[in-house]
């Protein structure tokens, strides 16, 4: 049932709904930026460079989240051969890669004043770079393999292999000595970020989540339309 309904339903999403989401996103980002740049306090050691964290942490979180979706969708695709799940993953990949780039760039900008260096090859930073490579390989495999079935299989295998990198990124700071600090927000203990800094972090996360949804919906709709056009072409010829 789900197989038939879902890809059709996406075409019914009106541009009006997406416009509303964009307006909501702008409002959330406005509030989040005001909060993180002006209302929230500077850090007791880092001073104002702590404000980079409000962009860095949510984008890293979503970069990992998007890839987890890619990997799980690919497993479903390999086992059950459901095409629209692959198209969902394909639509999520560019925005996931964008978040990875934002995470790496803002991390470097923070690293220079804090650590005294832009980049080091410690376990966390290296595994994050590997994640970027996996995103790139995934996207390029869709782009340069013209046959749909082959592109689908290749990209799925790439993202399933990349799935192993996720726990390595997450736990790299606990398993090995790294320059990068360990996680401040964990499921098992109270956050090590003061509440006045946690609020803007969460608002920014919400804003980025809405941005992700907007890009995903637009891209997924396009992918479904393209897929249907291709199918019709094959039928008529």
């Amino acid at each position: 049932m789900l197989k038939k309904i879902f890809p059709n339903k996406i075409l019914l999403i009106s541009p009006n709904f997406i416009n509303k989401l964009i307006i909501l996103m702008i409002a959330v980002f406005f509030l989040g930026l005001i909060y993180s740049l002006f209302i929230s306090p500077p850090d007791y050691i880092q001073g104002d460079s702590v404000r980079i964290m409000y962009v860095h942490v949510p984008s890293s979180f979503l970069a990992l989240g998007c890839f987890a979706f890619l990997g799980i969708a690919s497993i479903i695709n390999i086992i059950f051969k459901i095409k629209f799940v692959s198209l969902m993953a394909k639509s999520l990949a560019p925005v996931g890669m964008l978040f990875t780039i934002i995470s790496i760039v803002t991390g470097s900008l923070w690293g220079k004043p804090t650590w005294g260096i832009w980049w080091v090859w410690d376990a966390r930073l290296t595994s994050m770079f590997v994640l970027l490579c996996f995103y790139l390989a995934y996207i390029l495999s869709w782009k340069y393999i013209s046959d749909f079935r082959r592109a689908n299989t290749t990209s799925s295998i790439i993202s399933i292999i990349g799935l192993f990198n996720l726990p390595i990124i997450k736990f790299s700071v606990d398993w090995w000595n790294t320059l990068h600090q360990t996680s401040s927000i964990t499921l098992t203990s109270a956050p090590k970020i003061h509440i006045t800094m946690l609020i803007p972090l969460m608002i920014m996360l919400l804003g980025m989540l809405i941005y992700l949804s907007v890009i995903f919906l637009i891209k997924y709709k396009t992918e479904i339309m393209k897929f249907k056009l291709e199918k019709n072409k094959n039928k008529s010829s």
Partner: peptide
Amino acid sequence: EKILAKHDENYMPPEVN
């Protein structure tokens, strides 16, 4: 030859510290 400062996972305003 090179010194890097390592930051820990605690973030708080100066007053709280």
